[in-house]
């Protein structure tokens, strides 16, 4: 009897590991920076990727009828720690946008144009890299560090 239960438990455990492994394969998203995308282009075409970069304002174009949004992002470091070490998100984004030598990536997204899509915003795009080297995003998240700054406003300083 005991053996039966142990075998049953092992079978369930194996099933769970199997479920995790197959689901990981099907839906894992790889975090990459724009530099890494450039370097590993051939091996990552078609995979689910999540890429973070700085939005270059002049490149934003929007076709309202087909809801097609195109813009270019510039490389920024991937880790929070590196970003902090380089002076914080706002500064890192600013430098990325103003530095013409940075690696860049064109992103196409179908959907309404979000408010926060503006120059020097951080875009986090999820989707796939096409054969043409353009990134086709299914999901677009934006962060504007300057917008939600948590400091005491001027009026408090005056008092």
């Amino acid at each position: 009897m005991r053996l039966k239960f142990i075998l049953g438990g092992v079978a369930i455990l194996a099933a769970i590991v199997f479920l995790i492994a197959t689901s990981m394969n099907a839906s894992a998203e790889y975090f990459l920076t724009v530099d890494e995308v450039q370097a590993r282009q051939s091996e990552i075409v078609g995979r689910n990727l999540r890429i973070s970069g700085a939005v270059i304002g002049d490149t934003i174009s929007y076709e309202p009828d087909s809801l097609t949004l195109t813009f270019v992002i510039a490389h920024i470091p991937g880790g929070n720690r590196e970003i902090e070490a380089q002076g914080g998100l706002a500064l890192v984004l600013h430098e990325a946008v103003t530095d013409p030598t940075r690696t860049r990536l064109t992103v196409v997204y179908i959907g309404p144009k979000p408010d926060l899509l503006q120059d020097e915003a951080q875009a986090i795009v999820t989707g796939q890299l096409g054969d043409d080297g353009i990134f086709y995003a299914d999901e677009l998240l934006l962060k504007c560090p300057t917008r939600y700054e948590e400091a005491l406003p001027e009026q408090a300083l005056e008092n």
Binding site: I20, S23, S27, A28, F31, G78
Partner: peptide
């Protein structure tokens, strides 16, 4: 050294048989 995240499809696929 490669950061991998999983989204809703992972949880849906993996948990639905359970």
């Amino acid at each position: 050294g490669q950061k991998i995240t999983v989204g809703p499809p992972f949880y849906e696929r993996a948990t639905s048989p359970l």
